[in-house]
Amino acid sequence: FSITQFVRNLGLEHLMDIFEREQITLRVLVEMGHKELKEIGINAYGHREKLIKGVERLI
Rank of each mutant, 00 (worst) to 15 (best):
I59V: 11
I18G: 01
L58W: 13
G41E: 02
V30M: 15
F1G: 09
V55H: 03
V28C: 14
Q23N: 14
I3L: 15
V30C: 12
V30N: 06
Q5A: 11
M16D: 04
E20I: 15
K53G: 05
F6A: 02
V30E: 08
Q5Y: 08
L15Q: 01
G41D: 02
E49N: 08
L15H: 02
R48S: 03
N9E: 14
F19H: 00
G41K: 05
H14E: 13
E13Q: 11
G54N: 06
V30H: 08
V7G: 00
Y45W: 15
L29C: 03
E13Y: 12
L26W: 13
H34G: 05
K35G: 06
I3H: 01
E56A: 14
E13V: 09
H47W: 11
I52P: 01
M32H: 01
I24Y: 03
D17S: 14
I52L: 12
L26F: 11
G41M: 04
E56K: 14
I3S: 02
E20D: 10
V7F: 07
E49G: 03
H14L: 11
E36V: 05
E56S: 12
E39I: 07
L12D: 00
G11I: 04
I59K: 14
G11C: 08
L26Y: 06
R57V: 09
I52E: 01
F1P: 13
M16R: 07
H47N: 13
L15W: 03
L15F: 05
E39F: 07
Q5G: 08
L12K: 00
F19R: 00
K35A: 10
I18Y: 06
R21I: 05
R8I: 14
G54W: 05
M16Q: 09
Q23R: 14
E56F: 07
G46I: 15
A44L: 12
R48T: 03
I40Y: 04
M32I: 04
E36N: 03
D17G: 12
L37N: 01
L37E: 01
R21A: 09
L26G: 02
K50N: 05
V7P: 00
F19W: 02
I24K: 01
V30I: 14
L15D: 00
R48E: 03
T4H: 14
E13W: 10
E36S: 05
K50E: 08
K53L: 10
K50T: 12
K35M: 07
L12E: 01
R57W: 12
H47Q: 15
H14D: 10
K53D: 06
N9F: 11
E56W: 07
M16E: 07
V55T: 07
E22D: 06
Q23E: 10
I42G: 02
N43G: 10
Q5N: 11
F1I: 15
N9G: 12
M16N: 08
T25I: 04
L10V: 06
G46P: 14
E20L: 13
E20C: 09
K35T: 09
G11W: 01
H47M: 10
I42W: 02
N43V: 13
R8A: 14
E36L: 05
E56V: 10
V30Q: 12
L12I: 05
L58E: 05
R21M: 06
D17V: 14
R21W: 06
N43H: 12
K35R: 10
R48D: 05
R21T: 06
R57L: 13
R21Q: 07
G11S: 05
R27E: 15
R57P: 03
I3C: 04
H34C: 05
H34E: 04
G11E: 06
F1D: 12
E13C: 14
V55L: 10
N9R: 12
